[in-house]
Design a protein around this nucleic acid. Structure first.
Lengths: 109, 109
DNA sequence: GCAGCACGCTACAATATCTGTAGCAACAGA
DNA sequence: TCTGTTGCTACAGATATTGTAGCGTGCTGC
């Protein structure tokens, strides 16, 4: 499994991949980063910080490192960060959330 | 939109539902809770803490309150917590992650 | 009644994580 | 050389999470 060094994925000591994945995605900005890189976008770390509500560089670098270790994101020098093939696969699974978010926001209270 | 009182959803001040949703899901244990309630399971708060790596009661209650405000989870007295209709819809969108997690874990390095 | 027991939930101090600001070295134009 | 941008780091303060203890309520058995 990618990125399985000691604390790359917190908690979830069961070894079940889905738990490790849910834990990885359940960290601040992680889902957002993947979302912002959808449709083959490549963004520099600073551009990512800007689109992610001016997230702090510390945590942005930490998340990008984790995502790189996990094999979901890669750094293309001179071009910024973008999703790997695996990352795009994950993105495909997340795209339906856009439609759901619309329904969710409309279902008042 | 459900649960849009002041700080129910942190960051993401854009008002775009997808951002609010990604922010809600990007908090520790939130994804895991929804996952553990899949397939119409109903779990007590203590059972949820047990299956979620013994998460602390403080944070479990906080997450459950947020999810209830968001209309994704409900408390059935005498039966524990379970997903609402909306919550099940979200769950449907998350189920493919199980398969992805398997592929992810197999793609060494 | 009255123990036990599990429930949802809270208090509170210790710890981990995140933020905000500043700044580094390396590279690219002008 | 000067200006600007890149990826990335330091560090102190703020926020979120953990771990432990415990509350009040309702239920079951005695």
């Amino acid at each position: 499994m990618p990125a399985m060094k000691k604390s790359a994925v917190r908690g979830s000591r069961t070894g079940r991949p889905i738990m490790a994945l849910l834990d990885l995605l359940g960290r601040r900005w992680t889902l957002r980063i993947i979302w912002e890189l959808r449709e083959d976008r490549a963004l520099t770390s600073r551009a990512l910080r800007t689109v992610c509500d001016e997230a702090s560089p510390t945590i942005m670098q930490a998340r990008l490192s984790e995502l790189r270790e996990a094999g979901l994101v890669e750094l293309v020098t001179g071009n910024g960060y973008r999703l790997t093939g695996l990352g795009k696969e994950l993105m495909e699974n997340l795209l339906p959330l856009h439609r759901f978010a619309g329904r969710w926001s409309k279902s008042a209270q």
